[in-house]
Design a binder for these strands. Structure first.
Lengths: 252, 252
DNA sequence: CGGCAAGATTGGTCAGACCATGGCCATGGA
DNA sequence: TCCATGGCCATGGTCTGACCAATCTTGCCG
């Protein structure tokens, strides 16, 4: 009686001990871990693989879709399915939905962004090669060319910061930065509109970006971190100053 | 400005093809991000939802499987599909593949963790009240009480760092730290075992944690940041030293 | 030899049928 | 009246076979 105890209460992980879709997912995962399947390897065509594994094609497709969402497989119509080296793409999704469910105030999102960028510029000081530096340089030029234009300036600003993070060579930091940038997208444009006002303010911002780039070129992590923090602080101060002294005259 | 919560719209990455399966995945993701679907909400039965979305049931199932693999949906036979908030635990599996492909992935995630914690301790210096500080203190005591025990010490260490991040009062930083900590669990215990060896090393680590706490109590953000960074650096150096000089004697 | 078109291969989707599991309700027994 | 069990219905899991769409390969022509 009690010996036939609660099999219902045993909750294996979805792929473990399962049939059908779960079995196929487990088979592919295990083959990858065992080295029998390597990134770049092509799987049998769906019809053949389904027959080989003894499942129907919709079941196989379902399994492949699951693996594809995890970035372990890439499937192309007319071409086939290829094993992939996992990329941080899905990390971006996970952060996005985690933060969407648990998002803090915008300031907190901004703090997280500051954290990521400051760590990124530290790494960039030691890791960035000439190509990465040239990209940051180009992004800086984009900022200087668009200081008068809130919309284009906002995009140039975002591109500059993204180039900074990319120069770190850290895929984790890039994935996180992508998520945070999207979260901040709307407020970012508004922030910029509120900041741009006088020529003095615009020059200050341009100067701050030049300082950040110079710090990166100097290759000193602590200085670069401090300079980037100062840049964010300046932006805050200028915005406060602007709001305190200059009544809003443009509907923006 | 940012005084009120921003109604930020996030555009999820367009799903591959954006027809059929991709469209369904995008639909669910968008609905979650827009708040129309919340964790705990039950989706229509498969047959009904497929009809509603104008796709066949295998297509819908494929989409649900993809979402399930990302932890966004949980599907139970006989019961239905429920929206879930992504749990970082599902990342562990995938991170195993990432590690198999790239041993350096741990260091990458570690950099992100350092970024989050250093920003958190900065915020904690200005935001933490007596209750938060007491919690960090209690977590420090937990570390000091478990320096001889790799397993319990690992948990106490994690609890200390989580308490630091919690003391920042930033929901965003906490959510990100949770996710990163889950990733690092894959290798965390092994790292700690490699580090603990001699009494000298254990004392160094205990001292470093005390320093971090003292810096937090001093309420100086720059000093706290630098002290925490030094703590991470010390951990790295001790680990390298340990691996270089002391042959592994425990099978652990 | 190179380019283009046609055919073959392979993935994407659909419809309909059947099997398996979970939940709820009703009935019977204590 | 309460609890346990069984039956039924709802819902997910899988299969078969057909057709559509995209990619690749081969052959032919200039």
């Amino acid at each position: 009686m009690a010996m036939e105890a609660d099999p219902v209460l045993i909750r294996p992980k979805p792929e473990q001990g399962a049939q059908g879709v779960g079995r196929v997912i487990a088979y592919v995962k295990e083959a990858m871990l065992a080295g029998r399947l390597q990134p770049g390897d092509r799987l049998l065509p769906e019809r053949d693989l389904a027959a080989t594994l003894g499942v129907s094609r919709p079941v196989l497709r379902e399994a492949l879709r699951g693996l594809a969402q995890l970035g372990l497989v890439e499937t192309r119509q007319g071409s086939g399915s290829v094993i992939r080296r996992p990329s941080p793409e899905m990390l971006r999704d996970v952060f996005t939905f985690t933060l969407a469910a648990d998002r803090g105030a915008v300031e907190d999102v901004m703090e997280a962004r500051i954290a990521i960028e400051c760590q990124a510029i530290r790494l960039a000081c030691t890791r960035a090669g000439p190509a990465e530096l040239a990209r940051v340089r180009a992004a800086l030029d984009g900022i200087l060319a668009t200081v008068e234009d809130a919309e284009a300036g906002g995009r140039a600003d975002a591109a500059f910061h993204a180039a900074l993070v990319a120069a770190s060579g850290s895929q984790t930091l890039m994935a996180m930065h992508d998520t945070l940038s999207e979260l901040l997208l709307v407020s970012h444009v508004a922030r910029r509109r509120e900041t741009l006002g006088t020529k003095r303010i615009r020059d200050s911002l341009a100067e701050a970006h030049r300082d950040v780039f110079a710090a990166l070129m100097a290759r000193e992590p602590d200085r670069a971190d401090a300079t980037l923090r100062a840049h964010f602080r300046i932006g805050d101060e200028l915005r406060r100053e602007r709001l305190a002294e200059v009544p809003r005259t443009t509907a923006g």
